[in-house]
Simulated assay, not measured.
Amino acid sequence: MRTNRKLTRLDRVFARLDREPERPAHIDVPKMSRHRVVLFAATLAFYGAIVWAVVITSWLVRLDWQVMFFRPYQQWSEIHAFVDYYVVLGQRGPTAVMVAAWLGWRSWRQHTLRPLLALGVSLLLLNITVGAAKIGMGRLGPHYATSIGSNEMWLGGDIFPSGHTANAVVTWGILAYLASTPRARRWLSALSAVTSLGVGLSTVYLGTHWLSDVLLGWAAGLLILLALPWFEPLIARAETGIFDLRDRWRERRADAVAAPPAGSVTAPVLLKPLSAPADDEVAACEAAPAARPARAIVHPPVYLAPGPHTARADRMPVTPAGSRRPPHPDRSTRGAAPTARPLTGG
């Protein structure tokens, strides 16, 4: 009796993916619209305001110290284990590997390198901008603060802005940036914003960052996502160059396979034309026929019976001993001296 196997949810997901076209007819590439330019300018102004508020040791710095003295990790110690795992969503190594794996599969399915190249460009911009700001401002973290109420700027630290928050904004926000439909872009944008703010608040809970570090890190990551359309022409040229390089490499490989190896080509052999033999050569051949090489006689192969071969003298007789002829008294043995026959008659 044959029964149909019940499809699982994973089977239905793969069946739906197989029905999708391998190469999408149209890939929506975000452009630097007026709305995006306004958002970029507003975020840049917010970034500058946060930096200025910390530099002049304003109310934002006092709020940082109040949150630090509150010690959230002691007030809500029951969620400490969860926060330790949740903050990993902002670490650059694990998140970059997870997002790169997903975008790599998408690039392979859509036959385009744009998702991976966009991720690479965004991470490069993140390392340059956030790293330069960290080193340039040199702010110390809450655990290393020296003077109560100070902004702890230019003292050799590297926590302003928050790298975890900026990395969470860029890494998870790139999924929303590369979404193929407006609905998916809206949902992924909201999800990445909540995730990045959660990562930033987790660092404040653990006491590794000031609250102003988180606000500046969120603004730094958002600036990179808003500026990505300016780098789309560069991404398109890089993709075209990589595909051209791949095509040239394939052509060279095909030519190398089709061409014969260098050692197989031999020098041409010059054949001497046939000519009639001279008279002296004919006379020499007739005078000395024995000098001609004798034709070798080829004997057919000898097939021996299986088993060890013994000499003829060592073989056992296959017949009874003695002669098989009946005895004749009047005959003598071969090789013996003949006996005298009796004379009869007269």
Score class of each variant (00 low, 15 high):
210 W>K: 08
25 A>G: 13
198 G>N: 10
133 A>W: 11
337 A>W: 01
337 A>C: 00
263 G>D: 15
121 V>Q: 02
264 S>C: 05
202 S>T: 12
332 S>L: 12
140 L>N: 12
334 R>H: 06
298 V>N: 03
63 L>T: 10
30 P>F: 01
69 F>A: 08
22 E>Y: 05
250 R>M: 14
220 A>G: 14
237 R>Y: 05
181 T>P: 08
81 A>F: 03
89 L>W: 04
329 P>I: 07
180 S>W: 08
112 T>F: 04
303 Y>H: 08
134 K>G: 00
249 W>G: 04
256 A>G: 12
343 L>T: 14
151 N>I: 06
164 H>K: 09
258 A>W: 05
188 L>E: 14
293 P>S: 13
87 V>Y: 05
178 L>A: 00
201 L>P: 10
99 V>R: 12
342 P>A: 09
280 D>C: 00
219 A>P: 06
337 A>Y: 01
124 L>M: 14
209 H>P: 01
212 S>C: 05
65 W>R: 11
219 A>G: 09
180 S>M: 10
11 D>H: 05
41 A>C: 13
252 R>T: 10
253 R>N: 10
190 A>S: 13
5 R>N: 08
314 D>S: 15
110 Q>A: 07
51 V>A: 12
105 W>H: 05
30 P>Q: 03
47 Y>G: 04
152 E>C: 05
93 G>K: 07
252 R>E: 11
258 A>T: 03
158 D>H: 08
66 Q>W: 15
255 D>A: 15
323 S>H: 13
133 A>T: 13
265 V>M: 07
36 R>H: 00
141 G>A: 15
193 A>Q: 09
80 H>D: 11
220 A>K: 00
118 A>L: 06
171 T>H: 09
290 A>R: 13
54 V>R: 05
282 V>Y: 07
12 R>L: 14
222 L>I: 03
337 A>D: 09
322 G>V: 01
29 V>P: 01
24 P>C: 06
214 V>H: 01
330 D>F: 07
169 V>N: 02
106 R>W: 11
202 S>D: 08
263 G>K: 08
255 D>Q: 15
27 I>D: 13
185 R>A: 15
166 A>E: 02
264 S>L: 00
174 I>C: 05
1 M>N: 10
100 A>V: 03
177 Y>K: 02
335 G>D: 12
234 L>A: 15
67 V>M: 10
160 F>A: 04
274 L>C: 04
31 K>M: 06
321 A>L: 15
61 V>T: 15
168 A>W: 00
243 F>N: 00
191 L>T: 10
182 P>W: 10
157 G>I: 01
10 L>H: 14
144 Y>I: 01
343 L>S: 03
36 R>D: 06
173 G>R: 07
96 A>K: 02
232 E>T: 07
